[in-house]
Amino acid sequence: MTTALAALRRSVIDAALEWREPAARMLARLLPADVLWFVDTPAPVFGLTFDDGPAPETTPRLLDVLARHSARATFFLIGERVRAHPELVAAIADAGHELANHLMRDERSALVPDSRFRRELAEVTGLLTPYGPVKWFRPGSGVFTPRMLRSAAEQHLHAVLGTLVAANRGGPADARIAGELAAGIRPGSIVVLHEGTPARGGVAETTDELLATMSRRGLSAVTVSELTAR
């Protein structure tokens, strides 16, 4: 590929990345469901969230990175991992981050029978509440139904998705995640990253790079609750 073609390809990719977040906001406005995707705010902040923890391979390093950047985040935690690692849940809360409900297992919540969904949603909230208030939930795989939203509302939980989503998978593409996310982040964006497994160990480096880039742009990472208060 010639230098000119490479530059053109890069400019097209950059433009697509820059428009990904506005396009997601536009789509979210068209959906009738009561789901938080982003926040309309001029404040120089964005919501940073992590799914699928806690885990000893990822959570402690994430907490170190967040502390180094004076950043705050919302951790959407899986119940069975909360049971396995209560000390990590305590560490997240003690560091000033927000705890949120990501159901009991790493599975597609939309396929879970209603009775089990209701029961396990309440169970995970019960596991998290001793460490702090729980206001938010995120369905597994990001797919929701009206039934799920009604069940969550009855338990005083509000659904949160996001406009920018990425998952570290342990391959070469992981090195591009931070740059691709940074190209789309705007004030009020909600960013979704994933931890919780050894293959996602690179999420700490991704987060470090992302926060450094956003700091240079004057944007800070906050919890979902802090974002909605702006």
Rank of each mutant, 00 (worst) to 15 (best):
N168K: 07
R108Q: 05
A6N: 12
H97W: 12
G79A: 04
E18G: 08
A173P: 00
L48R: 02
D34N: 15
G96M: 04
Y131V: 06
P113I: 08
R169N: 12
R116N: 00
G162T: 04
R119A: 13
T206K: 09
L77R: 08
V203I: 13
T3V: 14
E205L: 10
L219D: 00
L103N: 02
T3M: 08
G79L: 07
H69P: 00
L5Y: 04
L31G: 10
N168T: 15
L27H: 05
F144C: 06
P54V: 03
G171E: 11
R150C: 05
L149N: 05
W136L: 10
G126P: 02
A71M: 03
A212P: 00
G184D: 01
R29L: 11
E107V: 12
G170L: 03
F76R: 05
F137W: 14
V222Y: 01
M214P: 05
T145D: 07
T223F: 00
T206Y: 06
E180H: 15
E18L: 02
V222T: 01
L31R: 14
L127E: 13
G196N: 01
P54N: 02
E180F: 10
P22L: 05
L210R: 09
K135M: 10
A15M: 11
R105M: 08
A173T: 12
